[in-house]
Design a protein around this nucleic acid. Sequence first.
DNA 1: TCTGGGGTCCTAGGACCC
DNA 2: TCTGGGGTCCTAGGACCC
Length: 422
Amino acid sequence: MVAIVDCESFYASCERVFDPGLAGKPIVVLSNNDGCVVALNKEAKARQIPMGTPWFKLETYARRNGVIAKSSNYELYGSLSARVMEIIGRYAAWQEVYSIDESFIGLRGDRAELERVGREIRAEVMRCTGIPVRVGIAPSKTLAKLAILGVKADPALDGVCHLGRYDQAQLDRIMESLAVTDLWGVAGRTGKKLAELAIHTVKDLRDADAKWIRKRFSVVLERTVMELRGISCIPIEPEPRAYKDQLIFSRSFSRPVSSSDEMRQVLSIYAQKVSGRLRAQGQAAAVVSAWASTSPFAQSGIAHSGHIAVGMPAHTDDPIWIGKAAHMLLPKLHPEARYVRAGVVLTDLRPLTSATPLDLFALDFEGRHVGDTLDAITRKLGPTSIGVGYGGLKDAPVWNMRREMLSPRAMTHWGELREVQA
DNA sequence: TCTGGGGTCCTAGGACCC
DNA sequence: TCTGGGGTCCTAGGACCC
């Protein structure tokens, strides 16, 4: 059987672990730049605050109604996540860490046994970390995800749902009551297309002709149909990937950027950031893409987004070359548009060892180890201590990220530990 | 004034080959 | 009246996830 263990309102729960005074209060966690709501605990959900609400629209309401807002503290969430995942892993032969707050695991045993293990996981994760988790158990990943919906809907389940507790008639009723878009893997676009074909509920989809679904949609949705019938066909990936297929560094600016000089600087900095991640993976990239776009919410002004993809003559991890490639975006941008976001993307990645280029094609800066030197300096003096070329200019238009409600990094920095008086 | 960031997988269609 | 067939590789874009 497949089980999914997912953390309840993970970011909000992390905040609460180190600030017990927050217990019972509505908490929202904000995206970078304190832009919009990316997580809510159940008290905040009960106040009908929608996910994605921009903070500037919520701020007044929040202050008046005792809603606590927190800037996102990924360092804290990441370290707590690692601990939670390690504990979950003790209970299973294999484990796929699916996201920062979810893990698939494989379990064996009869229903009673699996429900007992589920409760044990829940209790142990709570005891060791203070994070509440839910457990959904079923024959396939999609159904395990569905079982989690059961946990959310029925408090009597006390956090653990083995789908086998329902007989066929009950299961039919449950599936009939759920919209297809409640399913893992079915979002709005597909939902709309399905609705045109009179498929509205999970049960409708389960009972649809799988081959026909494949023809009209894709093999992906066909797999969902099979999984709903209890036939597991989305494989488990126990081994974390050694490498990413692509690396992205993208950020919104703290104010719009129009001038070419400023954008050149932004692209240089982003290129240096993403090339740092590349070197951390021990990889080199052959394609550099860059993009910039204006605000989709702007009421006036020029709406524009530009993007380029540049093939490199050889695989490289050099921040200077990657920066130069990213600069090729500049002529594609509109001189009067106010850009609010940009990104640099690296694809066609290879491990550095097998990327050794022929000397003939080696790039000029290769062998000078500019990247390694940058890495060494930033490790010692911090991420803003040095940059090359335009990325080295002070007063960058992008770095004053707003994080006005940031909690301490209580798991990873000595100076920010939580103090307790006995 | 102020609306996130980083990924994966699949498919259609074009380029190219013989 | 008439212009092949079969295949691979690559990429852009769509859809989805958290």
